[in-house]
Design a binder for these strands. Structure first.
Length: 207
DNA sequence: CTACCGATTGACT
DNA sequence: GTCAATCGGTAGA
């Protein structure tokens, strides 16, 4: 079955994450985010991401230097950075570009495996309501602060793998401003699959 | 300690 | 489209 093939696929390596976050954000589109708990496997296809830098990016948590909250962003690439905002959690993959702290926020996912689990955790039936939005992904996959700094390259608990079918030229990628930020609105660091129903945000930034 | 606020969401007009 | 709930992080007294 689909799930077991994906579970056997090798996790993306540290080298994948040790690059410019904008590039990583773009290349994470179409990849499969996997979560394993006692309830089993859950996960889906990443369809929307945002890059956050340190220098020149006032919207980034790393902009004002290291703190207790953002320390994962200053650690090695290939780890998770999980933070709380508005009483909810968001999940990032830590990247690194020329020694600078950076990360990619995973904003939306097309649910593929563990649908029942995710429906239960989200208290929602519709697939469109399960993982469209960064805090919804975390609720659906039971990601919280305990996974902050988690190593994503080991293929345990939380990791990312290549899909069976990679993106093709017919999968148009959109580059837009980031959603919800109150500064650095001019930077085009959000990436998503065009015309994908599982992407969040305004219509004009979806197609 | 208090006060303010946000990389959000869900309910509602 | 608008708006308020929610709570940890942060800055400042």
């Amino acid at each position: 079955m689909f799930v077991f093939d994906l579970a056997d696929a090798p996790p993306l390596t540290q080298a994948f994450y040790q690059r410019d976050p904008a590039r990583v954000a773009q290349e994470l589109l179409g990849k499969i985010l996997l979560r394993k708990t006692r309830a089993g496997f859950a996960g889906g296809r990443i369809v929307e991401t945002e890059a956050y830098r340190a220098e020149g990016d006032s919207a980034s948590h790393a902009f004002r230097g290291p703190s207790r909250r953002n320390r994962a962003m200053f650690g090695p690439p290939g780890r998770a950075y999980v933070y709380a905002i508005h009483a909810k959690y968001c999940f990032n993959a830590v990247t690194e570009y020329r020694g600078q702290a950076s990360a990619v926020l995973i904003r939306s996912m097309e649910p593929l495996v563990g649908l029942t689990q995710m429906q239960t955790r989200r208290k929602r039936e519709r697939l469109l309501d399960l993982a469209r939005g960064p805090a919804r992904i975390c609720q659906a996959l039971e990601i919280d602060r305990r996974l902050d700094s988690w190593n994503l390259t080991r293929g345990k608990r939380l990791w990312i793998v290549n899909p069976h079918a990679p993106l093709t030229t017919s999968d148009r990628i959109l580059q837009t401003p980031r959603i919800g930020v109150t500064s650095a609105k001019e930077l085009l660091l959000r990436f998503c699959l065009a015309d994908c129903p599982f992407v969040s945000g305004p219509r004009k930034w979806r197609t």
